[in-house]
Simulated assay, not measured.
Amino acid sequence: MSLLVQLKDEMKVAMRAKEKIKLGAIRMALSSIKQAEIDNKTELDDAGIIAVLTKMVKQRKESITMYTEGGREELAANEAAEVAALEAFLPTPLTDEEIAKMISDAIADTGASSMADMGKVMAVLKPAMQGKADLGAVSGKVRATLNA
């Protein structure tokens, strides 16, 4: 079953269960997916939908940090509930060991030896890790490995 169908099915379940926060998060996700399809003039596949959902989760995590620092705990709790609703549709996150192995394999496959080759390594890693790991953190680990 495609991710889009899963989202629509879960939206119906959330409507019936009167789960307002989950319903709102799913509606925002469907809206963002539709907007990305219009912007790109193409229909998104599961990988594209995962990219949209990952971006939404990242935005909400940043909002949680800002709300918490600002003393707005009720808003942070709402954002956290939305994150939980969206993460249910994302693939299982990779462990640190899996990430380290994928980085070393990508460096070996590309023959990378310096920071000049970082783009090649990230080009291999990005499709494999999209939605499964924070690519910013992965980029830092690749940078540290190549500088070592």
Rank of each mutant, 00 (worst) to 15 (best):
S2C: 05
S2M: 09
V5R: 14
Q6M: 13
K8I: 04
E10N: 14
M11E: 14
K12L: 14
K12A: 12
A14F: 06
A14T: 08
M15Q: 14
K18E: 13
K18H: 11
E19V: 01
E19F: 04
K22R: 15
K22T: 15
A25C: 05
A25F: 05
I26Q: 06
M28T: 09
A29N: 03
L30N: 06
L30I: 08
L30W: 08
L30A: 03
S31M: 13
S32Y: 04
S32L: 05
I33W: 11
I33T: 06
K34A: 14
Q35G: 01
Q35C: 01
Q35R: 11
A36P: 01
E37R: 11
I38P: 00
I38S: 00
D39N: 07
T42F: 07
T42I: 11
D45N: 14
A47N: 07
A47W: 01
G48Y: 02
G48L: 13
I50P: 02
I50V: 14
A51N: 06
K55P: 01
M56C: 01
V57H: 04
V57R: 01
R60C: 05
R60G: 05
S63K: 11
T65Q: 11
M66A: 13
M66L: 12
Y67D: 13
T68N: 11
T68C: 08
T68L: 07
E69N: 10
E69C: 04
G71S: 12
R72V: 11
R72S: 12
E73N: 12
L75V: 00
A76F: 04
A76C: 06
A77R: 14
N78W: 08
N78M: 13
E82A: 14
E82K: 15
V83K: 09
A85C: 03
A85E: 02
L86H: 06
E87L: 03
A88M: 08
L90S: 13
P91Y: 11
T92E: 15
T92Q: 13
T92H: 06
P93H: 02
P93E: 05
L94F: 15
T95W: 04
T95E: 05
D96A: 15
E97S: 14
E97L: 10
E97W: 00
E98F: 02
I99C: 06
K101G: 01
M102Q: 13
M102E: 10
I103P: 13
I103E: 08
I103R: 04
S104Y: 01
S104T: 15
S104G: 00
S104I: 07
I107F: 09
I107W: 10
A108F: 10
T110Q: 06
G111V: 03
S113Q: 12
S114I: 00
S114Q: 09
M115K: 09
A116I: 05
D117K: 07
D117L: 08
M118P: 08
G119N: 12
M122C: 04
V124D: 03
K126A: 03
A128F: 02
M129H: 04
Q130F: 08
Q130N: 10
G131V: 10
G131T: 07
K132E: 02
A133C: 01
G136W: 05
G136A: 09
V138K: 03
V138E: 03
V138A: 09
G140M: 11
K141P: 00
V142M: 05
V142T: 09
R143D: 07
R143V: 02
A144I: 05
N147G: 08
N147F: 06
N147W: 04
A148N: 15
A148S: 15
